[in-house]
Write a protein that binds this DNA or RNA. Sequence first.
DNA 1: TCTTATAGTTCTAAAAGAGAACTGTCAATT
DNA 2: AATTGACAGTTCTCTTTTAGAACTATAAGA
Lengths: 170, 170
Amino acid sequence: MKWKELEEEPCSMARTIGVIGDRWTLLILRECFLRTRRFEGFQSALGITRHLLAERLKKLVRQGILRRIPYQESPKRHEYILTQKGLDLYPIMMAIVHWGDTHMVDERGRPLLHQHRKCGKDFDPVMVCSECGEPLSAKEVHTHPGPGARSTPASPPPATSKTKARSRAA
Amino acid sequence: MKWKELEEEPCSMARTIGVIGDRWTLLILRECFLRTRRFEGFQSALGITRHLLAERLKKLVRQGILRRIPYQESPKRHEYILTQKGLDLYPIMMAIVHWGDTHMVDERGRPLLHQHRKCGKDFDPVMVCSECGEPLSAKEVHTHPGPGARSTPASPPPATSKTKARSRAA
DNA sequence: TCTTATAGTTCTAAAAGAGAACTGTCAATT
DNA sequence: AATTGACAGTTCTCTTTTAGAACTATAAGA
């Protein structure tokens, strides 16, 4: 499967995975949220090969998640900073960190704590329903097709060429 | 970088990425949350090669995210179902879907809607602070080292062998 | 002039993934 | 009794990605 195909599936998860669903991209984004902005910064923090780093940064810029901004002329140098679209990835990052904090810590405890400036306390991220404010769990949620679902009852899908996957929306 | 190394970093994000940070694993998990349980089900829904599917399922079982449970004898057949640890991935999945719903939909709109059984409404997932209940954004959060951080001021890190990454906790 | 900092690009070898075919067990059909 | 089909994998070859290291380019500073 190619990345491009993923981005075209009628599934918000598949599309998102097509953009950020590989380890290096996720780690680069972690660095972005930790305020890393420059090529060398990413490279030395992550130990990623320079080749891949250059490629991933380009992709993130293409996707509008990072913006490449000059911070000096001669020699030209740029910084990579998160756009709003990139900042919106924060809940994904926090959800990942929180799962790790819950299920992957060793005896020593959490590597990093998060303090909420507004209330001043160390916190955990909690996912709640936008309508009633209650915490969410998988079993309390029912999924149903939305307007962008692939097969409307009226018109069956036009035999999607070579892709063997029976497409499944999410 | 090998997956194993990731799982040993003092960073909850890196560790989590080591477990679920690749596209197929994420897509398999999507299917799990959509109630797919069997090998053929995953294979035909995703179009993943059988080889990779077998490997990924094994890994998820090893990690305690899925449990392999017999549903018939002769011939022996098993289903893969989410453990509690697996169910706890739900906020990650929802955060990913929601970002896609926000930034990756086409004119047609969302492929899938989510209804909260408790309140009966279609909702968006919102990430809030466990302490004060306010929605979170990256800029309102300050990160600081926790007990499991790698370099305690007292004892500097023991020159971490070959890994070139200057480790960075999260 | 020589070294360092920065941001890449280019090369080769190793690892991972794609694609297709094959195995083995049993139930149902011909 | 032999054949087909469902299911859950395994094995094979070929292609694409990654890893790892070296190289390029520009300018500032010792």
